[in-house]
Each structure stands twice: as structure tokens, then as C-alpha cells.
Design a protein around this nucleic acid. Structure first.
Lengths: 138, 138
DNA sequence: TTCTTGACTTAGACATTGTCCAATGTAGGA
DNA sequence: TCCTACATTGGACAATGTCTAAGTCAAGAA
């Protein structure tokens, strides 16, 4: 994740302790925390970090494309740092767990011209829903 | 939409004025209101209808599969009454307009077994994002 | 190194969306 | 018509996110 900090610096960002901590929390694959979870984990390392700062930093990371915002259920948005490799999401309807998955087709190519209504389409995201093994066993 | 009322009656639902009004508001294709918009439109016909009643009725319609809940942006969920025909959604990133669309492939079939992580998958939804003609012109 | 400055952070008020509950009302069967 | 279980109401509450004014600080300049 230090390369993320590097990229941020190249964009002229001021590297504050708060931003560093948020970036560290988001480190790793298959991480899909809510803003609140990011705040909780960041607080563990930097107790005085403000909620607003976490929201600000997450929004900035999303706007420059380093992190993807995932809203699967109308509850809290989740933040997915694995933005450099296109992938889709598999969500457990019961516990809300999210996995990154890689389907075979290209959904963008599968939308006929007649179904585009003049839109300029930039992106397609697929959400698979089901029950995870843990919840199925319970 | 009177057939919806008929189906509800068959399920043993009590047909109250409030439920009737909510069903009427949801009548038609390409309708994707938020709960608040449903409430506003229902209030126009039945001024004393409570917010909680609208939420209750919408939840019930979703749980019996007459209406689909769509959360495209982490803001308010939208309610899509066109549930009997499977379809996907095309969302304008600027104004939030939603259109129903029908891509060619079957996303469920495109998720390899190795990418299912033991989940029992029940459903796949695709959200296309882009800019609608109106917003592109502005 | 120290200074300066504009960007960053903070705390808390506020906004939006959704849920819950006790009291009241009523649809539909007896 | 009367009963009663189910539905509705209104308002409190909860969860998530946004905004603002005042204070703080990273990083370049001198």
C-alpha cells in the first residue's frame, strides 16, 4: 500500500497521519469495510481521528479511482481497494459478506445498441446474491 | 395494476385505502421512485397516509416479489414494480435516472464454479452506469 | 532552520433515510 | 351489526452521511 501513498504524493496530496492510517486500513485484497468500520480500525491506531476525515479521505480515494464504492443493500456503502483489477461482487444475502469474483463474459458488450437509449455507458457492475457456506450451514 | 390488487387479495391481504394508493402510484413501466417519492405521490391522493405505512407496504410488496428494490448509489432505495420480467438497470451518473434494459447474456451462467466459493447463488443483477442524453447535452 | 500559507482536520450540529412502538382505527368474516 | 385480528398512525429513535467554522500542520520558501 506504500505505492498508494506514493501515487497520492505524486498527485500533490499532503500526506497526513490520518490519510496514511486510512490507506493502511484499506490495505489488502478482499477488504470491503464500511466507512464506520474504516473509522473504527483507524481509531485503533490514531484515536483522535475524526469521522469526517475518514469520509473525506474515502471520497477522495474514490474520486481518483483508487477505491471503488460498493452499495449492495441500501445500508452503508462499502469501500473496495482492489480497484486496479476489474472484478464483480458476490454478496451473501444473510450476513452481507462480500467476495470479489471474475465472471467470464463482458457485460458491456452484451447490451445491444437498441437498449442504450442514447446513454454514453462507461461501466457495468454485476452483483451476485446468494447464501454463503457459513450461513447455509447455520 | 388492478391485477396486482387481485393477487394481493388472493394472498389474504386486507385491501385498505392506503395499500390501494401505494399500488396505484407504482403503476406503470419505467417507474423507479424512492420511498419518499412514493409517499409524496400517495399523499396527494390520501393526505393522511403515514410514512411508516408506505415503508411497510413497500417492504411487503418486495418480500412477495411484486416489486424489486434497487439501490444504485447508497442513497435512498428505489422501487421497481416491473418485477415479473427480469431486466437490468441503466443509471445516469449525473441525474440518477434509471431505465430498464435487457442485455443478451446470462450473467449467472458466466460465473465459473471456481469463482463461487461454495455460495448458493440465487440471483445476478447488472447495473450499467453512464450519462444520459439530457445530461450529456447540458 | 524557521516562517508562511493554504490545505487538512476536528467536533458537533444537521440532514436524510429508514425502523420501531404503543395507541387507535378498520376490513372482512361470523 | 359486531368482533377482532390486522393495519395505520405519529412520533421517537437509529444509522449513515454532510457541512461548517475554527484550529492545526505539511511542505515549500527564504
Amino acid at each position: 500500500m506504500s505505492d498508494l501513498l506514493e501515487r497520492l504524493r505524486e498527485r500533490g496530496w499532503r500526506l497526513t497521519a490520518q490519510r496514511r492510517v486510512v490507506a493502511e486500513v484499506l490495505d489488502g485484497d478482499h477488504v470491503h469495510y464500511t466507512a464506520d468500520e474504516v473509522h473504527a480500525r483507524a481509531s485503533a491506531r490514531l484515536p483522535e481521528i475524526a469521522r469526517a476525515t475518514v469520509y473525506n479521505t474515502l471520497s477522495e480515494l474514490v474520486s481518483i479511482g483508487e477505491v471503488i464504492e460498493v452499495s449492495t443493500d441500501g445500508r452503508a456503502k462499502r469501500y473496495d481497494p482492489n480497484a486496479r483489477h476489474t472484478h464483480q461482487h458476490l454478496v451473501c444475502s444473510k450476513c452481507g459478506t462480500i467476495r470479489d469474483v471474475h465472471p467470464s463474459g463482458d457485460p458491456l458488450a452484451e447490451l445491444p445498441e437498441a437498449e442504450r437509449y442514447g446513454f454514453t455507458i462507461s461501466d457495468a457492475s454485476i452483483t451476485y446474491r446468494g447464501t454463503c457456506p457459513q450461513c447455509a450451514a447455520a
